[in-house]
């Protein structure tokens, strides 16, 4: 029979065996280990990103055509192919926000703020974030899965054996393609969402186009547009680095692929929100 261990369960500090002490030591050790692992993870992502930037700035003489082909494919997949879904989501979001704002604000005597609401919620915040989530769900998961499968089937090793550097041929074009696509998609999302808002403003709230446009333009500053682009840049870099990292972290089993893909998606979402906070709070607080 296993004796019931009161010392552990009730937090009793035993003067002879010091069980409580051991437990707290374990906890401190766990926190320390997790903190170090977190820093190591961020350092690995930063290294991956820095290497991709170096490969972009100092392009090699060899393989330019092939690398460019991979980049174009990535832009087509992440950017162009995502246009329909981005259009639908942006349009619906714009409609929802202006419907809510248009029905609530006049009660408070602030009906003229519809333009400000769409600028603040969509262009500043939801546009970049929702676009990032679309890109993570479509392309981020695809990159992590593709690289994971490449690792298992040893395609990554085969590339290395052919003298084709992974950072130049695999990571850099995916990262650049994703960043460019993310920035363009974010700006596109904002435009479509504002247009969706206008459709509701025109049909339901009888706000004419010139009044709606004037309201939006009055609320919109250059900083808003600039920050949207900056967020797109930051989110694109983070998502690409995280998804490439987790894809290449797969070692030898196909069961690791969905595990790493899930991790890549969750970490991408968290990192995007963190970047959003870091960018937004100092600027608008």
């Amino acid at each position: 029979m296993v004796p019931y261990n009161f010392a552990v369960v009730r937090g009793f500090r035993c003067p002879t065996c010091s069980l409580e002490g051991k437990r707290s030591e374990r906890m401190i050790e766990w926190v320390g280990r997790k903190t170090i692992a977190g820093y190591a993870y961020l350092a690995a992502l930063a290294t991956l990103f820095a290497q991709a930037v170096l490969d972009l700035i100092i392009p090699p003489r060899q393989g330019r055509g092939e690398t460019f082909r991979v980049l174009i494919r990535q832009i087509l997949f992440t950017g162009v192919d995502a246009l329909p879904v981005t259009t639908v989501i942006a349009l619906l979001l714009g409609i929802i926000i202006v419907t809510q704002a248009g029905t609530q604000l006049p009660r408070l005597g602030a009906g003229g703020l519809v333009g400000s609401i769409i600028v603040v919620t969509v262009i500043r915040e939801l546009g970049p974030l929702v676009t990032a989530f679309i890109v993570v769900g479509r392309s981020g998961s695809a990159i992590a899965t593709e690289l994971g499968n490449m690792s298992v089937t040893r395609e990554v090793v085969a590339l290395r054996l052919m003298g084709i550097p992974i950072s130049r041929f695999v990571i850099m074009p995916r990262m650049v393609g994703m960043v460019l696509s993310m920035v363009c998609l974010t700006l596109y999302f904002d435009v479509v969402a504002v247009f969706g808002g206008y459709l509701v403003a025109d049909a339901q709230l009888t706000i004419p186009l010139d009044a709606f446009a004037e309201s939006v333009i009055r609320a919109l500053s250059t900083t808003d547009v600039f920050m949207t682009a900056i967020k797109g840049l930051g989110f694109g870099s983070a998502v690409a680095a995280v998804c490439c990292y987790h894809g290449l972290a797969v070692r030898s089993s196909y069961t690791e692929v969905p595990q790493q893909t899930t991790r890549a998606m969750i970490n991408s979402f968290v990192l995007c929100l963190l970047i959003d906070v870091v960018v937004t709070v100092p600027l608008y607080l």
Binding site: G63, R64, M150, R154, E155, A158, L161, M162, G163
Partner: peptide
């Protein structure tokens, strides 16, 4: 040095022709 491992690692998104062509395309542009 040409190497073929136990798992040959042909790129799954390329045809056989493009797989064989890849080193030439990359290194002999």
């Amino acid at each position: 040095v040409g190497v073929v491992l136990q798992q040959p690692g042909l790129l799954s998104n390329m045809t056989l022709f493009n797989n064989v062509l890849l080193p030439l395309r990359y290194h002999r542009g």
